[in-house]
Design a protein around this nucleic acid. Sequence first.
DNA 1: ATGACATAACTATTATGA
Length: 283
Amino acid sequence: MKIASFNVNGINGRLSVLLRWLEEARPDVVCLQELKAPDGRFPIGAIAKAGYGAIWHGQKSWNGVAILARGAEPIETRRGLPGDPEDNQSRYIEAVIDGTLIACLYLPNGNPAPGPRFAYKMRWFQRLTDYAAELLALDVPIILAGDYNVMPTELDVYKPERWVDDALFRPDVREAFRGLAEQGWTDALRTLHPGERIYTFWDYLRNAWGRNAGLRLDHFLLNPLVAQRLIAADVDRDVRGWEKASDHAPVWIELSVSTKPTRRRLRSARPGPDRHELSIIRS
DNA sequence: ATGACATAACTATTATGA
């Protein structure tokens, strides 16, 4: 099972790139960020024609997230991160696909820092951390995938000293990512490629792609049930060099075939009635 | 420090991104 995450930077402006990549990479599940389109402008026709079912949470001009499933309809379990009813930015959507809970997230950028935008980023991070702790208590496979807008370590930045005051790399932001991961989540790319420079984003400016001046911003966090099935993980770097490319490249993980969860496991994993709709994975 | 690119939107200029 291959699961990918791709910040498309405008799903309509980037549709040809997305469709070409879907055909070449054939991921089973795709988490998309930065749709930059309201719900009514999501290109469901073209995506369905490519063989994917989809759920999405759009927004005019900015943000927007979606989950695609090849030959299947994702079963939506949540849209919007809990913890702030005032937050109306489309940055979180969640579904169950083939028994696995998939969270697709787009963490706020936070620049300039300090300031209100940075405060929003840190609040969002805390809400994600609180909610992730709840998810970890569930005994089902869980993947938190998306654009975290954080480079976790110096290995994830082409020139760390240039970024220390930036909202993507400040020590407090790195600390927030570390705190989340240390709940018990496995950083898939880093675990399979320790010590390696890995980038998932290259700025359009200053020939960043040509100079390989990249950042690793897109991450997969896996709960233990998924981590034990992790076979491969990588970045489809070539896509960044295509015509009309997003500034992010797709990232993906490959999992070994899931053994069907037992009835016993599902029974103990079932959440409270109004807390989550995970009971739908009983089938 | 600035600007260089690119997106979507009240198509001309602005807000946003990272």
